[in-house]
Design a protein around this nucleic acid. Structure first.
Lengths: 353, 353
DNA sequence: CTGTTAGCGCATTCAA
DNA sequence: TTGAATGCGCTAACAG
């Protein structure tokens, strides 16, 4: 069969009109295929005039490289996988948006992999995915960023990865926000409003970040000269429901807190919900604050005070740094991003009961 | 250079140990490559014993087919693209989850494409994406499901697609929920609680679904013998902010409604927020209901009454039907999914002012 | 700075 | 029911 006689059954594979190939572009521009390849891969060593000729020919023919062929020949997938296990869709969606931004600029594709972090064999499952799709790199979100077993496997497999992290020093490539400092600063603010009994609903037991936010909480107390009271700290799971449950426990205490720090916005929403159920007014009777500044924090009433975490940017940065390494255009590094206290109406001065 | 002498610089591409190829499996099983190929593509005409031998050999060697090579040879991408333009991350994330479920079962990969529906040239942009990545099919969410120009282009390009739709008959393959009926039913419920002046904050002007939900609203009024009052219908955009703005307009009326139907949950959250800002109690002073039953509807206080839309399932179904066509295992069809009135505390009996 | 050639790993003819 | 040969479209190596 002659090569390139357009397939007789073009109707079977709904592919539209036959696509031009690199060879066609090369012919049209009067250069070799390799030169076209260079232009499309932004390699150096192409005269500017030549580059332009090629680009014009490509545009004229409406040429776009075939990703499968590129992948096969180059032994790359042009694929970045995002691994996540986080119950907050708002958070994940922001990260996705950021990662997509970076991927688009690099003509990379994003692959989504929800990971059941708690489930046995999640490391194995990730290994399978990598073996099958060979992503050129991974982006990890918390808590996977801190999952020792997973990271070790990734290193063993030789896969590059970047992470979004809550603690400086915990990741080699990616975006970091110093959550400990952020929380401590927010606590200082709340203390300044007169609160002395400040409860905390922690993150999930297996989340590494749980520890940083808790540490920030303790830092804040210590600096204010307030003794740490374990009775005021209850366990959450980053979910709305765990916020409701945590609030119940804290508000049922004989001497309940006048303010509650929830490990994330979803949890904080649960606290506000439970307070409202009890007829408590926020912030008059109870101050509440969270972490992340997801859209939810604006959508509940009263508006939630929280630590703004630039999740979308963090996703973009992590992917960008990863792609730098993948494409060899530089060395990926850690970028520290700033947090910001987002003060809304859910916190207010302490009022005597 | 000899084929398959393992690349000398294996370290450069961090790929781990050399992967077995189909040839290796064939040799180990004592069959030809074609037979292995048949087994992996679940083609008929393979003796059961042979099939088993091949599968065992593959498992022993830890073989997984190379997607790029498959794509190139078969002229398929093994890729499904999800096109969306919806401001509610909760909603999109649920759809994504569903589509991912279906893709995983079929060993297909998901590609995410946010589309700027309002932006000029969004049809062009989608065309570019299709040309470059050649997804084997698309899943469309509202409002793209109803985007005539886009659909026409897709048909012209010969790309298969499935959709999530709000109106029976609007899509050839996918999942459909009859939103008009759903809204009318919810209205009947609210009318039964004594409400006669029921406001509506619509969806975005360009959303096709806007019309169905509005039609349901009018149906509901008509059946209750309530005259349609245009003054009670204001324009929204499916966002929280547009809910706040819409609520302001409605509540500022000389004769404000006692209940408000917001086109989606995000918008309804805005209404509740604005009501709370004004010191109105929901539902005592104002009943509010939305549409979608995203997590948000549980996370605000009071809990939001809404129409439960099984978004995740709809995503899964649409992708499944699409994949049936792609893989030739059947004919894609439209699956009607049930809605459900999700009654929470945000609606209550009308109280005389 | 540019071109030539081989082969990435699989599906696909068509024959047996 | 199975196998052998060919090429999908591109990049890599190396020569020029």
């Amino acid at each position: 069969m002659l090569r390139r006689s357009k397939p007789p059954d073009a109707a079977a594979t709904p592919a539209g009109p036959a696509r031009p190939r690199m060879e066609d572009v090369a012919a049209a521009a009067g250069v070799s295929m390799k030169t076209v390849s260079r232009v499309f891969n932004r390699e150096p060593n192409v005269r500017e005039a030549t580059r332009r000729r090629v680009e014009e020919a490509a545009k004229r023919l409406n040429y776009l490289p075939n990703t499968s062929a590129r992948s096969l020949a180059a032994n790359r997938s042009y694929l970045v996988a995002l691994l996540y296990d986080n119950p907050s869709s708002n958070y994940i969606m922001e990260v996705i948006d950021g990662v997509l931004d970076a991927c688009r600029s690099a003509d990379y594709n994003l692959m989504l992999r929800p990971v059941d972090y708690a489930g046995a064999g999640h490391v194995e499952a990730v290994g399978q995915v990598i073996a099958q799709y060979r992503p050129d790199g991974l982006v990890l979100t918390p808590p996977l960023t801190d999952d020792g077993a997973l990271l070790e496997r990734l290193r063993h497999l030789g896969v590059r990865y970047a992470g979004l992290s809550a603690k400086p020093g915990n990741v080699r490539i990616g975006a970091v926000l110093d959550e400990r400092r952020a929380v401590a600063e927010m606590l200082a603010h709340v203390v300044a409003l007169g609160h002395r009994r400040i409860g905390h609903i922690t993150g999930h037991r297996d989340h590494g970040a749980r520890a940083w936010r808790l540490a920030g909480y303790r830092d804040g107390l210590r600096r204010a000269g307030i003794a740490y009271d374990p009775a005021l700290v209850v366990e959450g799971r980053h979910t709305f429901e765990s916020g409701v449950a945590g609030a119940r426990r804290l508000l049922d205490l004989a001497h309940p807190p006048s303010a509650i720090f929830a490990a994330n916005d979803d949890t904080a929403a649960g606290v506000i919900f439970e307070a409202s159920e009890r007829g408590l007014r926020v912030p008059d009777d109870l101050s509440v604050f969270g972490f992340d500044d997801t859209p939810l924090s604006r959508q509940i009433w009263p508006g939630l005070s929280t630590v703004r975490q630039p999740s979308r940017e963090m996703g973009r940065i992590a992917a960008e740094q990863l792609l730098r390494e993948i494409r060899g255009t530089g060395t990926g590094r850690v970028v520290r991003v700033p947090y910001q206290l987002q003060l809304r109406r859910s916190i207010g001065p302490r009022r005597r009961a």
